[in-house]
Amino acid sequence: MQGGVIYDFGMNNGDDVEYYLLKADKVVGVEANPALCKAVEERFAQEIAAGRLVVLNVALSTEDSGRSLDFYTHKTNHVLSQLAAPDLENAEEFERVEVLCRRPSEVIRDHGAPRYVKVDLEGMDGAVLREIFRAGIHPPEISAESHSIDVYAALVDAGYKAFSLVDGWSVAEKYRDAFIETSNGRQAFHFKAHSAGPFGADVRSEWQDPETFFYTLASAGLGWKDIHASYFIEPAPAPSFGKRLGRQTLALARQFLRGARAYVSSKDR
């Protein structure tokens, strides 16, 4: 599968955009840090002029679109910028800026059905997944950081059938000299440090069914790791141990998701 629209939710400095432009007809990059948006606009001026890249300087939120929100940019390490207010002991490391917010589902409806969505929003990943799924949007391929088990549970609940894990720490090494699938055939590509890395068929890790992947994630642990999910990639055959115990753990994951949603609903009241 090539072409279509790719959404980069948490575009950062555009290193992922470089890869996505080789995979899609159009890329929509969303980033709350205005300085990073300006840098990406300069870096990819030709692609923007050609209509292949759209850069949106907004914060993704489940709140009503058009509101202004506080966003906190890190003074020395832009990858640590965040929507949540920093802890008091770290407050001096951040600078507060005001940005408009948009619902992720509205961004997608404005720019077309997604072929792939990357979510990397420093703690907001689960909320963004739930918002687009509630809106009836189910990208064929999607990824989100696994800082919370809620991310895995949301993807399972949405019915994705194949899962894989990309470790953020190993991207620059494991995919230093990678070959990726493009509309013009296989092509060499160098993934940079702090980039999200590949997706879909370009991922070298095994694709597993939801139950087997539960154990893979439990073994790897949460953190700077992207959970990739697909509706059309066929997972590898599951080991026998996973089928017997997997149903129970899958039920627990869904139970956790229901509890997480109830918690979010209670906070909104």
Rank of each mutant, 00 (worst) to 15 (best):
Asp87Met: 13
Asn77Gly: 04
Leu88Cys: 07
Cys37Trp: 07
His190Ser: 10
Phe241Ile: 01
Gly197Phe: 00
Asn33Cys: 11
Asp177Leu: 15
Arg261Pro: 04
Gly259Val: 12
Gly200Val: 00
Phe163Tyr: 09
Ala32Glu: 03
Trp169Pro: 12
Glu95Tyr: 05
Gly200Lys: 00
Leu22Asp: 13
Tyr160Val: 02
Met11Asn: 03
Met1Glu: 02
Glu93Leu: 07
Asp70Glu: 13
Pro34Tyr: 13
Tyr19Glu: 06
Ala35Ile: 13
Glu95Trp: 11
Ser219Met: 13
Glu41Val: 02
Ala260Pro: 05
Ser240Ile: 09
His78Ala: 14
Pro139Asp: 02
Val117Gly: 00
Pro104Thr: 12
Leu53Gln: 12
Gln187Tyr: 08
Asn13Ala: 14
Glu181His: 06
Gly51Asn: 08
Leu53Arg: 04
Asp15Asn: 06
Asp110Pro: 02
Ile233Ser: 05
Lys75Tyr: 08
Gly10Asn: 02
Lys243Trp: 09
Asn77Leu: 13
Ala188Asn: 10
Ile149Arg: 14
Ser148His: 09
Thr249Trp: 11
Lys174Ile: 05
Phe241Pro: 11
Leu245Met: 12
Glu31Gly: 06
Phe213Cys: 07
Tyr116Thr: 00
Pro239Lys: 14
Asp202Leu: 01
Pro139Trp: 00
Glu234Asp: 07
Lys267Gly: 04
Gly10Val: 00
His74Pro: 09
Ala158Phe: 00
